[in-house]
């Protein structure tokens, strides 16, 4: 199947510090790819490059086969709408209510009407179980609630892919479950997802593919049972031991 997102020979350095040293991988439609690896291995940088929050130094990022770094015909706002991102720190807009958070992008980027945007926002707020909080401000919500709103905000753009960067790492333990179950539902509905996570249980249960990043390269990748159950590299083995 043709990949939705494909990364080829991706390089990124901050000054003299080479963080990504040639990354190659692809995600097909409906696939859930979990990216694991120790702190500093470049997982966030990889997602941020795909989303163009960082400019790569070399390589290609193909979206349906077109390189977003060089293909001038790609409409960047549309690309961002199609490739959503959910952050560890939620990053909700503090000056807006829950509903407005989910509407702004639709109106500004997709030029939808207020009514359309509201309807769509409500649809996804219902999906993540936050429809009761439409008029709340982010500062009035718990971490788990904020993250569910952030997911709804991303979904409201009707994306093809969502990149999740440690979506549960900033949450109190009792709130991790509510967010993971929302993500599991999305996976079952066929959304393409790239998920950086330390939740090995989630990776084992939901991922189609697990990618282990180590020191700026992909050291191992494959089906979850294979990568997590039968790791070949010593570094992956010690990483998995440290996760227990």
């Amino acid at each position: 199947m043709e990949p939705v997102i494909e990364v080829r020979g991706l390089h990124k350095a901050f000054g003299s510090h080479e963080v990504l040293k040639g990354i190659d991988f692809a995600a097909s439609k409906g696939e859930v790819v979990c990216i694991i690896g120790s702190s500093g291995s470049g997982k966030s940088t990889l997602l941020r490059c795909i989303n163009l929050l960082e400019t790569p130094d070399g390589g290609a990022i193909l979206y349906h086969g077109r390189d977003i770094l060089t293909d001038g015909t790609i409409n960047m706002p549309k690309y961002h709408a199609k490739v959503g991102m959910v952050f560890q720190q939620f990053n909700l807009f503090g000056n807006m209510t829950v509903l407005e958070n989910c509407m702004t992008g639709q109106m500004k980027v997709l030029k939808r009407t207020r009514e359309e945007s509201m309807e769509n926002a409500m649809k996804y707020l219902r999906k993540v179980g936050m429809e009761a909080y439409v008029s709340a401000k982010p500062r009035q919500l718990s971490g788990g609630q904020k993250q569910r709103v952030a997911i709804a905000r991303s979904l409201a753009m009707d994306p093809e892919v969502i990149l999740f960067d440690e979506p549960t790492s900033a949450l109190d333990p009792e709130m991790v479950g509510e967010v993971l179950s929302v993500m599991q539902n999305l996976a079952q509905e066929g959304l393409t997802m790239l998920v950086v996570t330390h939740e090995m249980g989630f990776a084992r249960a939901v991922a189609d593919k697990v990618v282990f990043m180590d020191q700026g390269v992909i050291a191992e990748e494959g089906a979850p049972a294979e990568v997590l159950g039968n790791p070949r590299h010593e570094r992956l083995r010690s990483f998995l031991r440290s996760m227990l």
Partner: peptide
């Protein structure tokens, strides 16, 4: 800074991010 990034991540331009967020 996260709010800038979130706005960019949903495709808002620098100007839109500034004025609305």
């Amino acid at each position: 800074k996260g709010q800038f990034e979130a706005a960019h991540a949903i495709g808002m331009t620098h100007w839109q991010t500034m004025t609305t967020v």
